[in-house]
Design a protein around this nucleic acid. Sequence first.
DNA 1: TATGAATGAGGCTTCATTCAT
DNA 2: TATGAATGAAGCCTCATTCAT
Lengths: 193, 193, 193, 193
Amino acid sequence: MKERKKESILMTSLRLFSKNGFHDTTIPLIAKEMRMSVGNIYNYFPSKNNLAKCAIKFASSILASTLRKINEKDLTTKEKIEHFVESYYNIIEISPEIIEYFLRVYLSNRSLFQSESDGGFELAKDFIGEVERLIDNGVKKRELRKQNFFVSFSVFIGTLGGMTFLNGENVLERKPIHYSKEISESIYNALKV
Amino acid sequence: MKERKKESILMTSLRLFSKNGFHDTTIPLIAKEMRMSVGNIYNYFPSKNNLAKCAIKFASSILASTLRKINEKDLTTKEKIEHFVESYYNIIEISPEIIEYFLRVYLSNRSLFQSESDGGFELAKDFIGEVERLIDNGVKKRELRKQNFFVSFSVFIGTLGGMTFLNGENVLERKPIHYSKEISESIYNALKV
Amino acid sequence: MKERKKESILMTSLRLFSKNGFHDTTIPLIAKEMRMSVGNIYNYFPSKNNLAKCAIKFASSILASTLRKINEKDLTTKEKIEHFVESYYNIIEISPEIIEYFLRVYLSNRSLFQSESDGGFELAKDFIGEVERLIDNGVKKRELRKQNFFVSFSVFIGTLGGMTFLNGENVLERKPIHYSKEISESIYNALKV
Amino acid sequence: MKERKKESILMTSLRLFSKNGFHDTTIPLIAKEMRMSVGNIYNYFPSKNNLAKCAIKFASSILASTLRKINEKDLTTKEKIEHFVESYYNIIEISPEIIEYFLRVYLSNRSLFQSESDGGFELAKDFIGEVERLIDNGVKKRELRKQNFFVSFSVFIGTLGGMTFLNGENVLERKPIHYSKEISESIYNALKV
DNA sequence: TATGAATGAGGCTTCATTCAT
DNA sequence: TATGAATGAAGCCTCATTCAT
């Protein structure tokens, strides 16, 4: 199945990109890792850039769907934050590349994504939309303070990103999930009414 | 003066690196921007990698000295956080490259800095040390909660980084400094007792 | 056939290296001569240095096999020397680059080959081994004087090298093979009991 | 004195060229070794190529004058050869660069010297002339066989060059001078009537 | 679909040489 | 004479992409 193989290439690329960065991951390397020929990769993706864009969408959709499931549950905002922080670190434990990809590729290769209408921001729209929903709901239910969305977003995602970075640098003494309680508490305190 | 020119190259590189990322900033581009020849760059820095490392140290020392001055004042921790957030966004307004460099280059080009004994972490030690001092003092004075340092660090720096990223993506309606009150409040709430 | 082309690149490089020396033979020049692209050369040899090393081995093995065949014949040492000198100059006539390569590249670019365990000496081991066998046998059969091997080696190979050099400089009035009788006589006289 | 300094630059260059080869010896390196500025070198020699040519002449004249002194003595040819071989290895012990220069630079950078009318051969004329005198005299005095000069020259100089090479490769167990008796005997046997 | 040899533009870096001081 | 910053051409090598098979 073509779609099957396409996704497999995507996963492999995601892993390599997030490990080595976009520029240090060559198409021959991806091909070798996939045990297919260089030329054949191009039967599935028209360019390396496109591969990177698809990877962003892919990673974003995984995070989005995780968060969507939580959003749909009947939980307090505090609990939702706790659940998401935990899920987030579960993902890091199982597939760190999904998260690290944002840090290593998306943040630092702007030019790659700028051809997109809105500077590539659209590529992560799914995920950002779910964060927005979580926060808006919290505000509506008077559990979170009303403040500029981008500030709340930064507190939420920036904090998680910071821990992810530190984890990638191997400076944490324990696995990130160990800190999830403190983290969700911090985030909740930052945003609560 | 040779030292003068060296610093000038550093600033230019910092700007270009932070705008385009490390790989999309070529030495010929830096040279062109400096209106000097390619070869002459190498009279000041032995390699592009070294230039990137020096830039990190440079940016880190600016942030560190800003924070050091605030740490030395006799202020409550809340006020210190407010002052730093403001200074931070002042820097972003005047020289956004100093901050963005961390985001676009340091965070995302691990391999560049890994030859350093400490995985390159050392390069930002100055700055990290001052953050640590701010937080530790806050804890000692019973103004901040006692929790794992890395968590507090992530809340603090991750939030600022998040806003910096959003600013770089041009999604903010107003200049970042406009949000500094909300941000410092969020950070303080996240960390306070 | 990939192996075919690899050997063809090797021969071309050998010729150019021996004509112009290592440093004045550029990869673009080799590529042009081969009518292939620069990049494609690197599909066959990982570096210019490696190309030079392979060329040494190649040239050494040709000389070695020539000499081995002579060693295996049932001849007096005098005759063996005569045969080899003649073969040697036949090679010079047909493929002077094989011999000149030693003179122009191997002798003079120590640093190129020094990464090898043995200072690069190993690269010519095949050939040196056969020379050793020729001389040792002569000594055993009481046809040659017993003296330090390196001295005998120098007389033997140095003399041939000298003539090769003079030939390359175009100072000889006739083809080197014309002098082979005088040369083998000189060498034999130098070494005989 | 300008002439003094010129010679000093020449000696330094000779040493560096013979150690590292022509291409791996940079003008900045020579300047550093001389403790003078790069630009100032050019007040003494118009180009790096010219420096190399002058170095050949210089080295050749030293060898030539050594040999001339021996030629002028009243000795048998056998003794002259012995004396020269000894002097040669004395030079190697004191200033190996003078000899090695021929091996490392002259032999392998033909293009450097080819602009000269006769392919650069002229540069070593002094020395070659003295070798010629030694051999011609030997022939006249019926001590040496009459044979093509270039063959005799190759035996003589090739043998010495071979030992020099082996010495440079550090494969000799003892200093070259230790072998000088065997060498001069071999050379003499090769050439005698 | 699949292969992998081939292309060629472009990046980093070096270094002989010049020139303002 | 002396300095050393500046120039710029040129070399090695990489890699996204294509294409004949």
